[in-house]
Design a protein around this nucleic acid. Structure first.
Lengths: 349, 349
DNA sequence: TTGTACGCGTTATCAG
DNA sequence: CTGATAACGCGTACAA
């Protein structure tokens, strides 16, 4: 069934080898011959079989996209950017989404399913175990990490230090001293995750402001709204007197807002909340946030991967800038009202 | 390079044919032989080459997922459910996302890239042109439509009539008569899109309530927040006196809320708003909504597709139920306060 | 139940 | 610049 390369060859009056060369745009074909082949292919509505092509060439024109679930804004935004870039370059995208359990763990990823299937792999927001990294390496294809990744690999990420700096300095500038955080529990690779970089940077900024470190002021969520809500509940239980919350993602921050509202606490009257991401609904909800360009990180990661596939040398550590967008969810700590005289007095979202 | 099927055969002391049969779990292999093969394969860390396997068998164990962009909640939720189901069945997912332009149009989809690449196709929320449907058919693989699809195809969808019935009856029950709608402009297949089904059903319910049809009370968005906001602006420009808004997706409804707030209008004091979907943030924002199970629709579509691939007869039209969740964004029309005496008086989200 | 041998549709090598 | 032909690695009739 189906029309094959030799049908085209026969019709164009050339060999299959020439058809293959002409269709792939190789330079050693006379222009007139190429046109003849192109016409014959079009007339027969010919399209090469990807399996046969892969088998013979060893290339697949396919990229594996390993990502944590779309329930997280960052992941789906990165996927959007990466998919678009890869498709524009003629690559297909094989999607592997992984669900994390509530405690931050997940089932181990079986990389062997990708063997011989992809020309490269993009890993989004999933810290991999050493074992997983090793089997990934054994695939023998380029790998790019987006969002979180070991320092010796090609990676694209948010400037996490700047992230925490902007957030903490903003809160400190408003007079807050009882500042709690909602980060992320991650089973693997903790030192190189975005969450741990943010935690480290936050600790430094707090110290710099003369605020003593207190581990009990740090809780962990799973980057979902529900997880953020639960983490906020645990914090408020332990520290009813906290006045500010630095949350590592907008979605977790939304969950925290729900919890605060549920407890009858006013935002920002009683508690200021700042998130990270730049979620589309941040404006409507009035959430102050450190925003980043996630789609751009996807595009960038895809571009790097494509360059590696064509054998180019690439920058190994691309860092994306962040910026602060102040909305209604943060305000001066009690007793510091003067500082915020010019701010919108509107209350909870 | 790499270990092949004959390495395994040699090690297990059998032929390559037996290795192939044993590894695929075919019944005609003696159990003892199978174990020997399995052990040899494991020891050599063997995995069959997908390209070679596809080339020889004609099967790919891959599903094509055609979807409109993840910017829409429905799409990403369906993808989540479908991906999980397909992976659990041992199928890979090839992701093709398509961006719609603001006017509801998009670049034509080139289905030929899927030829010989997939065993089936899942189409999510993209109305296809006749031409696209035809080339899709020529792929010769089963196709399932989720969210929107022609009546003669296997499809999974929301009960759109119930959707509009719940929404309109809710608003009518609150005493509203100037009810505007934000639907979706779709370039192809308009008669069979979810939006047109909802529009038809809404018109019927309004008529039933004695409210005359007025096309100028219907606007179109692109299912994004920004599109919803713009559509709301156009409606309010034309009909400053409208008191209720039935929006075909929560995200567009969020955009409408932004526009209303921007104009200093109170929700639900001046205008009631009801959306559709069951977006995670509906609760925090206080949006009344007709909720549906999008993840379930993804799972269902994937299951149907898998059944079709194995040659089973399947239900051709699966309809998912919807239900109404009332929150703060809807209230009695002015002059009807008595009806809502028991409702939360809270104002704009 | 197992083995043999051919075919799947390209690409790449090497001559010409 | 073009053609002949050998891989590529596995599935599957057919034979045993």
């Amino acid at each position: 069934m189906g029309v094959g390369i030799d049908d085209v060859a026969r019709r164009a009056g050339v060999s299959t080898a020439t058809v293959s060369r002409a269709l792939r745009g190789l330079p050693e074909v006379r222009e007139e011959t190429r046109q003849r082949v192109l016409r014959a292919a079009a007339e027969l509505n010919y399209a090469p079989s990807p399996s046969a092509s892969s088998l013979a060439s060893g290339r697949t024109r396919t990229i594996g996209l390993l990502t944590a679930s779309f329930s997280r804004w960052f992941n789906r935004s990165v996927v959007e950017g990466a998919e678009r870039t890869l498709r524009a370059a003629g690559f297909d995208v094989l999607l592997h989404a992984f669900d994390f359990l509530a405690d931050g763990t997940r089932a181990p990823i079986d990389m062997t399913t990708l063997r011989q299937r992809v020309d490269g792999v993009l890993v989004l927001g999933i810290p991999l175990s050493d074992d997983e990294r090793e089997t990934l390496d054994r695939l023998g294809v380029p790998v790019v990490f987006v969002g979180t990744g070991p320092p010796d690999r090609v990676r694209v990420r948010t400037d996490d230090a700047a992230c925490s700096r902007l957030a903490i300095d903003h809160l400190v500038g408003l007079g807050h001293t009882r500042i709690a955080q909602i980060g992320a529990a991650l089973p693997h690779d903790e030192r190189w995750s975005a969450a741990s970089r943010r935690a480290d940077a936050a600790a430094r900024r707090l110290e710099r402001a003369g605020i003593p470190a207190d581990p009990s002021l740090v809780e962990h969520g799973d980057y979902t709204q529900a997880g953020g809500r639960e983490a906020a509940a645990r914090l408020l239980e332990r520290h009813p007197d906290l006045t500010a919350l630095y949350v590592y993602s907008d979605e977790m921050a939304f969950g925290a807002l729900e919890e605060l509202r549920g407890r009858g606490l006013d935002v920002p009257g009683d508690v200021s909340v700042i998130g990270v991401d730049g979620h589309e609904l941040g404006d409507l909800i009035g959430l102050t946030s450190v925003v980043q360009d996630a789609v751009g990180q996807g595009e960038s990661g895809a571009t790097l991967l494509l360059e590696m596939i064509t054998g180019q040398a690439v920058a190994s550590d691309v860092r994306f800038p962040v910026s602060l967008v102040v909305r209604r969810s943060t305000a001066a700590a009690r007793g510091q009202e003067a500082l915020s005289a010019d701010r919108d007095p509107a209350v909870t979202p």
